[in-house]
Write a protein that binds this DNA or RNA. Structure first.
Length: 421
DNA sequence: TCTGGGGTCCTAGGACCC
DNA sequence: TCTGGGGTCCTAGGACCC
């Protein structure tokens, strides 16, 4: 039985803000999504005040003022950099690591012949000492049980010290009986509805359902989870995560009717996707564009649509992808609607150095050095110094980010300075 | 006034083929 | 006029994750 460790950063984005602003410790902190739309991270204090995940900022305005909640616009550059630091430290504790998300990873602890709880405490101390990001750690015989253990570690920190090890069947059953059904990994809103209707309220009752029932109603994915929670190792550590799609999507800060304005944005989304592709040295073979009206406004006519275009050749050229994205928009755009959101996806990747020459479509090979030059200039000077004409030079549209913290770790001009008396 | 963004996987059903 | 069975591939949509 290979034990797994699961490491989860506590309230990650809020904790990142605290690292560089220690006066926030003890204060409620929330981080807002793009356009300062809704709360996407809350410190424990903010959770205790009742701020819900995903809650729109305008609905909690009074609560923010009343309790002096510290509010930040999302600073993903900072969070990404802090994440790398945490993950690098943890990678030193095992030869096999799966980076599951920006703030979580799994480690394979097979063959590590030490007291594993003590080992977990060592990881926790090292990460906290070197990054000041607090973490919770769960260890168990399967990935799903390690994740369950992390919840126990976090919920009962005074007793667990932030590290919990499910090393006996007794502890496994105790944890499963405690874990509410809606908190089980892989059980979302729809499945919770289905299961509570059958009076299944915790993970222990869930694992006692028959395999057949689970497979029929929760698909094969639900069955794998069930086995993993029973202690039968089913989910594997996934060390190499090759992306299968890349997206750039935005909600607009206002509703837009004008096609030319939407075209500017869609064109920019395509350019961003192309940049992400070049960064990971792949090309895409398909591009998808979608637009949608504001589905919160039931008083307005609604319309949404998407289109996927197969490309005649693999590319990561900003110019080509912007062209195809614009073509896609032409196919789905309808006059007379107020649009609120749009996005571009690219998928079906092939490695950059492995493009098959297509004899029917003559790919403009001049784009390759051109894109390299643009990337160099933009990374050296300002992020969007060179743009395509379709991206509306000068008349840039900005995200609302009124509470943005500095890029403490990734921009030399914003590095923290200390004054010594 | 104001409601995020970026991902994965699975299944059912249609198109097409022999 | 009637109208099989089995296979594959693709896509849209729905569920989930952080």
């Amino acid at each position: 039985m290979p034990p797994f460790a699961h490491i989860d950063c506590n309230n990650f984005y809020a904790s990142c803000e605290r690292v560089f602003n220690p006066s926030l410790i003890g204060r409620p902190v929330i981080v807002l999504s793009n356009n300062d739309g809704c709360a996407i991270a809350r410190s424990n204090e903010a959770k205790a005040l009742g701020v819900k995940m995903g809650e729109p900022a305008f609905k909690i305005k009074e609560l923010i003022e009343e309790h002096n909640i510290a509010v930040f616009s999302a600073n993903f550059e900072l969070y990404g950099d802090m994440s790398n630091r945490v993950m690098t430290i943890l990678s030193g504790f095992s030869p096999s690591q799966e980076i599951y998300s920006i703030d979580e990873c799994f480690l394979d602890l097979e063959g590590i012949n030490v007291d594993l709880r003590a080992y977990g405490l060592e990881m926790k101390q090292k990460v906290e000492k070197w990054t000041h990001i607090p973490v919770s750690i769960g260890i168990g015989p399967t990935k799903a049980l390690a994740k369950t253990a992390t919840r126990v570690a976090k919920k009962f920190t005074p007793q667990t010290g932030g590290v919990h090890f499910i090393d006996t069947d007794e502890k496994r059953i105790k944890a499963l009986k405690w874990l509410q059904i809606e908190d089980v990994w892989g059980i979302g809103r729809q499945y919770t509805k289905k299961l509570t209707a059958m009076n299944i309220r915790n993970a222990y009752q869930f694992v006692n359902l028959s395999d057949e029932w689970v497979k029929t109603h929760l698909t094969i994915a639900g069955l794998r989870l069930k086995h993993d929670l029973q202690g039968i190792p089913t989910l594997q550590l996934d060390e190499v995560k090759n992306k299968k799609s890349i997206a750039t999507t935005r909600t607009f800060d206002e509703m837009i009717e004008n096609k030319a304005d939407i075209r500017e944005r869609v064109s920019t989304f395509a350019v961003k996707c192309a940049e992400k592709l070049r960064k990971q040295k792949t090309c895409c073979n398909a591009i998808q564009v979608f637009i949608t009206t504001n589905y919160f406004r039931e008083d307005l006519p609604q319309y949404s649509n998407s289109v996927t275009i197969k490309l005649p050749f693999a590319t990561n050229s900003s110019i080509e992808l912007a062209e195809y994205a614009t073509m896609g928009l032409d196919r789905i755009f309808r006059e007379g609607f107020k649009y609120k959101k749009a996005g571009v996806f690219v998928m079906d990747f092939t490695p950059e150095d492995n493009q098959q020459l297509n004899i029917f479509e003559n790919r403009n090979t001049k784009h390759i050095p051109l894109m390299k030059a643009i990337d160099r200039v933009n990374s050296r000077y300002s992020k969007d110094l060179i743009r395509l004409a379709t991206q509306a030079p000068g008349r840039t549209w900005r995200m609302r980010q009124e509470k943005l913290s500095k890029h403490y770790t990734t921009d030399i001009n914003e590095i923290i300075t200390l004054k010594l008396k």
